[in-house]
């Protein structure tokens, strides 16, 4: 892992746990003592079986959720002490999400979808929303489909629109939750390559959740999540899986 001094810590987790109370009053411990640092410009992959808590971890990284215990600092600020509004604003300005199911807003054109995050931006970015969104669509190679509705786009195209939407506010942290999970292998690879390239170009940190080890191999650091415990995965090991 490259930890040169020029890199700034975006998110740091120390002994973070997350548990939920089930309807039968029992506690479900989803995450048990996670330690993780995400530095600016990092490309991190997290692999693990379905249901092992990957999405829960990603939600914590993106301030959609707060830890049950342990410390989570987001750009130096303890997440537990931020109000939900402050977390929303911080999330809007620094985090971009890419989901497995694309999660595009139905009935709205590709362009309108990419514009959505800019509704929550301040002044200049809101007024220049069309221009910025067109720019981003251009980057993912979809400027020609700007006025197309999501249901008229292929899976790969939809995920590219989602990537443009995640990046339109120039987030410093991109969180991708199984971005290739709903795509065929080839399309998935192309989308992953695009995500990796765009993240590099915009100097954003990228945290990708995947169970595709090929995808994991692209990352500069790899972790395995198993029963709520995070452990580093040696490069060789990651390669060996493929």
């Amino acid at each position: 892992m490259d930890t040169s001094n020029s890199q700034e810590t975006l998110v740091s987790l120390r002994s973070v746990t997350r548990s939920v109370t089930l309807p039968d009053e029992k506690q479900l411990h989803i995450l048990r003592g996670i330690d993780l640092e995400v530095l600016s410009g990092d490309h991190i992959a997290i692999v693990g079986r379905s249901g092992c808590g990957k999405s829960t971890l990603l939600n914590l990284l993106g301030l959609l959720d707060v830890p049950t215990s342990g410390e989570l600092e987001f750009m130096g600020q303890p997440a537990q002490r931020l109000s939900s509004n402050a977390r929303a604003r911080l999330r809007g300005s620094t985090v971009g999400f890419v989901f497995q199911q694309f999660n595009l807003l139905p009935g709205r054109s590709a362009l309108d979808n990419v514009i959505t995050p800019l509704f929550y931006a301040k002044g200049k970015d809101f007024w220049r929303r069309r221009e910025l969104a067109m720019d981003m669509l251009d980057r993912v190679g979809l400027s020609a489909r700007a006025n197309t509705m999501p249901n008229m786009l292929s899976g790969g195209e939809q995920q590219r629109v989602a990537i443009a939407r995640a990046l339109v506010r120039r987030p410093r942290l991109i969180l991708a939750d199984e971005p290739t999970g709903a795509l065929d292998v080839e399309t998935g690879q192309a989308v992953m390559a695009l995500l990796d390239t765009v993240a590099t170009e915009t100097a954003a940190a990228l945290v990708t959740i995947t169970h595709d080890t090929n995808v994991a191999a692209l990352a500069r650091a790899c972790y395995r999540l198993d029963s709520g415990v995070l452990s580093p995965l040696a490069r060789a090991e990651a390669g060996a899986h493929s």
Binding site: A88, N103, T116, Y120, R165
Partner: peptide, 16 residues
């Protein structure tokens, strides 16, 4: 509901 969740993930506050 899902759409609202998506908007919130992109920074919409509860008040918004």
């Amino acid at each position: 509901v899902r759409e609202i969740g998506i908007r919130r993930s992109f920074g919409a506050t509860a008040g918004r």
